[in-house]
Design a protein around this nucleic acid. Structure first.
Lengths: 146, 146
DNA sequence: TCCTAATTTGGAATTATTCTAAGTATTGAC
DNA sequence: GTCAATACTTAGAATAATTCCAAATTAGGA
């Protein structure tokens, strides 16, 4: 990412956070950077490990706090694909998650115009929705056939 | 449920399980009954508590084993809506889950013909998908307005 | 009936997440 | 810039959810 882009991103980050009474701290920036740099839907644990490389004193509690803050202000989404650890995804476009039940890989697929319209039950105020598609990724499906 | 229906259900249960080398045991039947009797998307813990009423000696490990067996043979689906406990749902029709972020209520809405078509990325072999809609239920949304 | 494999059990172990209390940093008012 | 108020970070303890384990039991097929 260019410096210009990065500065713009930080401005956005700051604006988003402060609107909700939250603050932009070096740790939150770092956690967000980690998510942006490698969009492989890491768990909190993985974010922690990656963030420590640049910021060795960051703690697990802070990673959770940062992730929660980012989720709260709409910069990151929380993704629950299996029993166990929650994953985090900085892609805020409408998309669904494809999860390989064999190897655990996750990837995003954008939702285009006519796909995936969820019903709008009366009275329910929709905030957002998550679509998780389970199955076998191309590579694991190929292996199975052998 | 009538006795006839129940017997039919058990036959189905048995067939489904045995096809995958699994067995129909009293515990699995009990766990399945619990799910059918109150379809409020209970957690494993809640299933455990309810199952104990009819079968006091059932253990938590068995509840997990039963739930996993039922999920594996396609009679129950696992639902991940938030951080924390997994929920279980015996409704195998295509539907999505509406989750109230305020009070935690969950309800199903059937997917009708034109709604929710997920993309089919090349090579990925889809097994099933889960749609979780987050927001405020009618009652909580109304309270908020006040 | 006998054998084999699947299942159940209680408890220990592990993993994921939350809580707590004390110190530190940031913000806005003056 | 100083000060008070509030938000944030930290390490570690505590809790919650799930998995693992080894021994005893049960179910299904020959």
């Amino acid at each position: 990412m260019s410096l210009v882009e990065k500065n713009k991103m930080n401005g956005d980050l700051n604006k988003r956070l402060t609107t909700g009474g939250l603050r932009l701290t070096p740790q939150r920036q770092q956690v967000y950077d980690v998510l942006i740099q490698k969009r492989d839907h890491p768990t909190a644990e993985e974010v922690f490990i990656r963030a420590k490389q640049a910021m060795p004193d960051i703690s697990m509690a802070t990673v959770y706090n940062c992730l929660d803050a980012l989720v709260q202000c709409g910069l990151v989404r929380q993704v629950q694909l299996e029993r166990g650890a929650t994953r985090f995804c900085p892609n805020m476009e409408e998309h669904c998650h494809y999860y390989c039940d064999e190897c655990g890989t996750v990837f995003d697929v954008a939702l285009t115009g006519n796909s995936a319209v969820v019903p709008r039950p009366k009275g329910f105020k929709i905030d957002h929705y998550e679509i998780a598609v389970h199955g076998l990724c191309a590579s694991c499906a190929a292996k199975r056939k052998k």
